[in-house]
Design a protein around this nucleic acid. Structure first.
Length: 216
DNA sequence: GGCCAGGACACCA
DNA sequence: TGGTGTCATGGC
């Protein structure tokens, strides 16, 4: 669909390249993807910083650290007990299935990796796709709350569309590409943060001209 | 002081 | 299968 490409170009013109994911390593991407669940990135940054200072932002240390100690380090991310448990579940998965070798895990075929990640407690579809796209660098479009909210409001999607329906819609109507998917998702998030939280789309929002209906 | 954030899960009807 | 409650800190 040409409109999806036009929106991408509009967002790129307005916000510039986002260069996601903001992380130094693929492992950091995965930890960040879990920590940022329903949480603003600024809160996650503090947790990431704490983990780095403690020297535990690596597969071996994070596997060994106790959940209670981990929870204290990631307190700023909110839901810290639940997220500590999620991180520990992922680490158990990594060590049981790949002997702690992240490179081997990330080199698995995309479909297999996605299926395995979705079986890990605490990893849902958005987190799994974020890991596949930004850590494994394989083309898997990431759908988040902003994506659903914005594209349903401008009339491209049903308001109650499922995650997989939305994902399929984008992957079917956009050229496949890792760099392109990475940038598209990042730009949608930037648009969402700027113009489209839980309020209606502002009329100054740059995608308003693509709307099938008028917004106040 | 209230609202919201780059979700996921458990439980219930 | 869909709706609702829970997890919780920090910025505005």
């Amino acid at each position: 669909m040409k409109k999806l490409l036009s929106i991408y170009n509009t967002l790129l013109e307005n916000f510039g390249p986002q260069g996601w994911w903001p992380a130094e390593t693929d492992f950091e991407v995965i930890v960040g993807a879990i920590l940022t669940q329903a949480t603003s990135w600024s809160n996650v940054e503090k947790s990431i910083s704490n983990l780095k200072k403690k020297g535990v932002l690596n597969p071996k240390s994070l596997h060994e650290i106790k959940a209670g100690s981990l929870a204290k380090l990631i307190k700023s991310s909110g839901y810290f007990n639940a997220k500590a448990r999620k991180l520990k579940c992922f680490m158990d998965f990594l060590h049981c299935n790949y002997d702690g070798n992240l490179s081997v895990m990330l080199s698995q075929p995309k479909e297999r990796l996605r299926k395995e990640l979705l079986e890990v407690w605490g990893v849902g579809p958005e987190t799994a796709d974020s890991i596949i796209l930004y850590a494994a660098h394989k083309p898997s479009f990431v759908v988040d709350a902003y994506t659903k909210r914005i594209f349903s409001r401008i009339g491209f999607l049903k308001a109650n569309a499922s995650y997989d329906e939305v994902k399929h819609f984008f992957e079917k109507n956009l050229p496949k590409g890792v760099k392109f998917y990475k940038e598209y998702h990042a730009l949608v998030v930037e648009l969402g943060k700027t113009y489209c939280r839980k309020k209606p789309l502002c009329k100054e929002c740059c995608v308003n001209r693509f709307c099938s209906k008028q917004f106040a």
